[in-house]
Structures are given as C-alpha cells and as structure tokens.
Design a binder for these strands. Sequence first.
RNA 1: GCGCCUGUAGCUCAGCUGGAUAGAGCAACGGACUUCUAAUCCGUGGGCCGAGAGUUCGAAUCCCUCCAGGCGCACCA
Length: 554
Amino acid sequence: MKIKIANLVAATVRNCIAAGLIPTADLPYMEVEVPNNPEHGDYASNVAMILASQIKKNPRQIAAVIQSNLVDPENILEKTEIAGPGFLNFYLKESVWQNTLQIIEEQKEEYGRLDVGGAQKVQVEFVSANPTGPLHIGHARGAVVGDVIANLLQTTGYSVDREYYINDAGNQMNNLGKSVLFRYRELLGEKNEFPENCYQGDYIKNVAQDIIKKEGDKYLALNEEETIRNFTAIAGELILTEIKNDLRDFGVIFDHYFSEKELYENDGVGELLESLKKQGFIYSDGETLWFKTTAYGDEKDRVVVRKNGEPTYFAADIAYHQNKYSRGYKMIIDIWGADHHGYMPRLWAGIQALGQDKESLKLILVQLVNLLRGGLPVAMSTRSGEFVTLREVLDEVGKDAARYNFLMRRSDSHLDFDLEVAKKQSNENPVYYVQYAYARISSILKMAGERDIVFPAYKDIDPALLQEPEEINLMKIMARYPEMIEGAARALEPHRITFYLNELASLFHSYYNKNKVISDNEKLTAARLFMISTIRIVLQNALKILGVNAPEKM
RNA sequence: GCGCCUGUAGCUCAGCUGGAUAGAGCAACGGACUUCUAAUCCGUGGGCCGAGAGUUCGAAUCCCUCCAGGCGCACCA
C-alpha cells in the first residue's frame, strides 16, 4: 500500500515536471509514511518540501500543484490534504481496507510472504558456541535473534541457510579433555589438584562418569597425551549433542554444523595464506606472519601465524568466510555477542582482501543479557561453572516466554531478563497477552461453530457493516502487516514484530471488550466473524516467524 | 589513553534511518465479570529525549565537544 502511494506520487510529480508545472528538478528521494497522528491521514508524503528546497519555492504551493494533478488509476483515494509546512496527507477509501480482509483470507499463511529477496542465497551464522560446555542464557539471546532473522529473510523471499560454526580446534578443546581426565581420575579414586584453568562445571563430571560407565578405568594406564586427545573428542561429541538437543527444544534447527577442525584438515587455512601472500596482504617479521588489515581501515595489522608456527583463530576465520563465499552466498550474516565488537574491522578487512564487498557481510551484535531473579542480579561465571543454562531457562519459563522476551528489545540494547517475571503468567509477561488474543478468537470461532453459524465466504459478507472505529483500525493495521515485515527484514530487526503484535493484540482486546462478535444480527455477525478470523491469521503468521506457539486455548 | 554500544516517564523499553502535539508496558490511583475466556478492558496522573553548541523549512534521530554506564583494545577463541 505504501508503495502504491509512493508510485502514485512519483508518477504525478513526473507528469508535473513534464508539463512544466514544476520547474525542472530531479525526482527526489521522498518519504511516504504512516503519520504518528491518525488525523494526518493514512499516509503522508514530504515530496513538496523536498522539492521546495531544490527549486526554492513555497512548499505549500508545490503541494497544491501536485494535489490538483494527482493521478489515481485504481481509485483508492478518499481525499488528500495539504497540511503543516507542506505535507501531502492521503486518506484512503474504506473499501481499500475492507478489501484486505479478502486478501488475507485468500492468502492465509501466505499473507505477509514477500519476494523482495529474489531467492538470493543468504547464510545466517549464529550461536557458534565452543563445545566445551552447555549453552547458557547468554547464548540464548543470540540463538533467538539469529533464528528469527533467518525466518524473516525466508519469509521475504531469500534462500536462507542456518549455520553453526564449531570452534573445535583451539587449545580450549585441549583444556576440555584435560578437565575430563582430572575428573575421571578423581572419580576413580585418584587424588589430584584440579587445575585453575580447567572447566569446573558439573557437566564435566557427567562426561567422566559416562566414560567410566562405558569403558571403565582402562584410560588410567594409557599415555596421558593420547588420553586427553581421546577425551577431548568424546567430550566434544557429547557436549555438542547436548547443545543440539537444547537448541532443538528452543525451536532452533540448523542446516549445517561447520567444523573448524575440518578447515585445517582440508588445508583451507594453508591455501588461503598462500594466496593472500601472493597478493601482498601478508608479510613476515621474521618470526610471525602478519595480515595487513590496516589496508582496509583496521587500527593495526593482525597476526595470522604465530611464532610457534600455528595459525591464529583469525586466519581460520578468514578461510571460513572464504568458504562461505565459495558456497555462493550473496549475503552473509554473522550474529555475535557484543563483546566481540573489536573484531569487526579485522574480519571486514579480511573479506575485502578476498575481493568481497564489505556490504555483503552483515555483522550483528547482540548485547549481553543481564540476568535477574526477582529484581536481583544472578551471578554468572563460565569458568567457575556458575551459570544459568539454556536448559534451566527452558524448564523454568518455557520456550515461548523465553523467545518472546529476547525479541522484545533491539538486539544492540542491553537486556534485563528476569526469571521471575518471565515465568509469571500475568500481564507483566507480554507473550501471554498476544497468545491470549489468539486463543480468544479461536474460542469465538469455536462458539460460532457450536451454534451452527456457518463461517461465511467473503462474497457473502457486507464489509461495509464494519464501521466501528476499532474495526477500521484493525483493518488498517492488518493491511500494514506486509510493510512491517518488509521493514523488519530490511533492517534485520526482529523486535519490530513483537511491537506490531502487541499493537494488534491490544486493538483486538479493546474491540472485544466493547463489541459482541456473535449477536442476533446475522449479517453483522457474519462480517465480524470473518474479520476476527483474518486477525487470527495475521497473529499466527507473525508468531510463526517468532517461533512462538499460537494456542487455541489458554 | 583509543575504539564500539547505550543514555527517552519512577522502572523496562519503542520511536519505522530528518517530519507535524515524543509513545507503549509495568508500577501508582479510580472504575468494569449473570455476557463470545477478567492472562482482558476503560479512565487519571507522570518528560530539559544525559548536557552544550551546530547543520535546515524541521532534530530524540545527523555533525562536533563534554558527562555517565556497559564492553572491547592478544601470537585467546
């Protein structure tokens, strides 16, 4: 709808320029938007003011010229007004809004599905936590944000893959194996001091226990180095399986798990460094190899091969991103914890050295979660093993409330997550507010069925009966659903959906309290049943993108 | 010291990439269940948009300088 108005304005301005009514000017970049104040029309445009500054004329005069020459081939305008400093306000015919009821009913779960992406290949990489311990609350936010961004892009016509990068190569994995070995010995009665830099969490004991159960004490007699390698592999495998299970129960399913280790095994890193060296991006200071990231705006160059001959994480990461591009992705989205922001210029430099456009790699920072319980901070420290796991959050507050809570804020704003509030089934918890609207509609439709009221077809209702202000507003906001989705997808901002849902649910609850849907008036009942059914469709489509359930009953 | 993010109602946050009189939820206060679900609704109060200068028809939004909080500044990942 917004696009229709924009096109209509653009066509009019072009006509006016061609007819000499407006002194020659470029067709400006202009805004068509929904005004804050509904008294300013359904849509408003600032063209006249933009043109005014270009050609130095009174914006209201220009607006008047545009207004009197408006072309409206589809006859959707009720009236237009010139207001304020020179806004053009457009009021649309009610039939336009009523017509969206039919569109929604016809398209059902397709309503809001767009093809702005043109099937372009996109990869979203997220979570990517080291398999050295279970996922905790901090990973959960990134998991939901990544998942919903992927859903959004999918629904707007991109071909999306979700990928998890397994950092299974560094020395933190070696520490994991070591930690398990210590617990293993401990459980088998050997006394030893547990080293500082090892993982303290109870899950390490569980892994050791598991090994004892399956293979007994045979590792006590074996070579330590080899045992650590074995335990690393076993523990990594077990923990990764747990991570996958947690994510699955959180509603997050990945298409690929990409192993850093395989990158080395296939010599991706070595080949990459070789080719970058030929292009002059790599130099040696005699002991280490440096990447000239300053060539692309990084504040200093970065080491890619250490003194001891081992490539750094950064080297592997460039190779990884080269691999991504080689798989044909046109847009690559990485979701990171905000504590990694210092790493951004480095990676952008890396992919530009590969000949890729900086714009093709979107780096999204998700701020850390501030975990509370009843208003008081919950202490968290990974190393000591004191942290709230994703599993505990799932058990305590459930998937829907957890996901919704993480989606209620812009991802670059800090988020307080209060376990007590998230768990409460009350008005403090917005997820229920939205779900309740869905359940209420379902309940009304069910009631209508029980009273043998046949659900009407669009041709059998008279949408002009929907004259209540709340009804008009409901139709308007539903008509804007696709625009909201497109905006959220373009900006990669999932939180816009929760705000939209809250508004739609609020309008519905208000309407519900004021009006009866099922009444003695058969025609009115039919029209209202039809409308609330379309509300239910929109609620369902939006909730589906969020990965939150839409319950028939609550 | 340098860099990134944040600063909007008592609290938690939106504000659609520069628009018109800055909005929600919670909390506070007062009302509405014999009714299609009260996990709801209706009403009332509440603001130097961190501060100061600047850009222009127009700034919470953009530029600059400060102030405050968070996070980074590895041959860790």
